[in-house]
């Protein structure tokens, strides 16, 4: 991911154009375009959506409609680490609720919020990961953690925080 000459955010904007061009600005390609743009920004900023609407010659309201229909898209900035706690039946009965609470406490989330103010962590629940054998399961970015306990998840978060602290130096 190292890119020394161009600042990060600037590279991102070039990326939006690259993505739009890659899909030939086709209206039918709106969803893959949004997916890739979200990959780049970790969310879908309002003005980028308007920009995409203009490039695809559709109305911003339509792009907004698609972006809000699918749970995978977020219109609010997400944290660097997105923690998905499975709350499907199996995980729920194996105690996913206390784990969710433990995570929220550990990363310091105020009530009603899903993302920390420093954009470090986003904590949310998902219905079922299809990993019931590992219940209770938690996914952090793309990594799956199985049979999680409160102690284990606190340790994992500590490690992530430490990694960040080192990365900043």
């Amino acid at each position: 991911m190292a890119n020394t000459t161009v600042p990060k955010a600037q590279r991102s904007f070039e990326k939006v154009n690259e993505i739009v061009r890659k899909y030939e600005a086709k209206e039918s390609m709106l969803i893959p375009i949004l997916q890739e743009v979200q990959e780049e920004y970790r969310y879908l900023p309002e003005e980028i959506l308007t920009y995409i609407a203009t490039a695809l010659d559709i109305s911003p309201a339509t792009v907004y409609g698609v972006a809000t229909f699918y749970a995978q898209f977020s219109l609010n900035p997400k944290g660097k680490y997105v923690i998905n706690v499975c709350d499907g039946t199996a995980c729920h009965v194996r105690g996913s609720s206390p784990i969710l609470e433990a995570i929220r406490r550990k990363v310091g989330l105020a009530a009603g919020k899903i993302t920390t103010d420093d954009l470090g962590f986003t904590v949310q629940t998902v219905s079922c990961l299809g990993a019931c054998g590992l219940a209770p399961a938690v996914v952090i970015n793309d990594k799956v953690y199985g049979q999680v306990t409160e102690e284990a998840i606190e340790l994992i978060i500590d490690q992530l925080k430490q990694k960040e602290a080192e990365g900043d130096n």
């Binding site: 609407a53 559709i58 109305s59 911003p60 309201a61 339509t62 907004y64 409609g65 809000t68 229909f69």
Partner: peptide, 28 residues
């Protein structure tokens, strides 16, 4: 030919709204 309004969100939360849930005065 403008498309100020469209469906957004889904299920019981579905709404017809201007882009980004803004007021009509703030959009086109």
């Amino acid at each position: 030919g403008i498309g100020v309004l469209d469906f957004a969100h889904r299920g019981s939360k579905a709404q017809v709204t201007p882009a980004f849930g803004k007021g009509l005065e703030e959009v086109d």
